[in-house]
Amino acid sequence: MLKGVAFALGSGGMLLLRGENGAGKSTLLRAIAGLTPLAAGALLWDNSPALADRAAHAARIAWLGHLDAVKPALTVAEHVPLAALKPVGLERFAALPARFLSAGQKRRLAIARVAASGRPLWLLDEPTTGLDAASVDRFAALCMAHRAAGGMIIASTHTPLDLPDMEVLAL
C-alpha cells in the first residue's frame, strides 16, 4: 500500500501527512501505532525497534482515529478528567450524557482525551474534522503546548493547519 516512506521526528516535532483520499495517510498512522503490521521496513523509537514491546509502544501513543470513540451512554466527564474539558471548551457540558453532543463537540471530547493522556506521541487522523474556527484555534493551542513540553505529533489533514516548525510528508 505504501512504499519508500521514511521520516524522523524529534522531540517537540510535528509531522503533517498530506495526500489525496486513499493515499495511505490513515494506514501509515495505524502502522506507526502498531495496529497494522509493517510488511517491510522498521519503526524505530530512540534507535531501537518500537514494536518489539507492543505494550510499551502503546503506552507512548495517544490515538485519535477518524472515529471519536465517544460512548453515548456515558456523560462527558466520564470520558476524560474534568480538568481536560476546559481547554476544548466543553466544561459547561460535563454532566451531559455524550449522546446529546454534536459531531464537532464529540470531536472536541476526543481531542480532550488525547490532550489528557500525557503520552509523548500523538497520532491524529483528520483531527479538525467538524470543528469550528474557534475550536481549531483551541486545538492548535493544545498542539503547541504539547510540543513545548517535548511531545511529538503526527497528524493527517486536508484542512489548512498553520503551526510553526511543521514538517510535511506528502504521500
Binding site: A33, G34, L35, R54, A55, A56, A58, A59, I61, W63, G65, H66, L67, D68, A69, V70, K71
Partner: peptide, 15 residues
C-alpha cells in the same frame, strides 16, 4: 468496533 473504541483499547497498553 463501530465507534472506534476498539483501537483505543488495543492502544491502552493492555495485551
Amino acid at each position: 468496533f463501530e465507534d472506534g473504541t476498539l483501537d483505543l483499547l488495543l492502544l491502552s497498553g493492555l495485551p
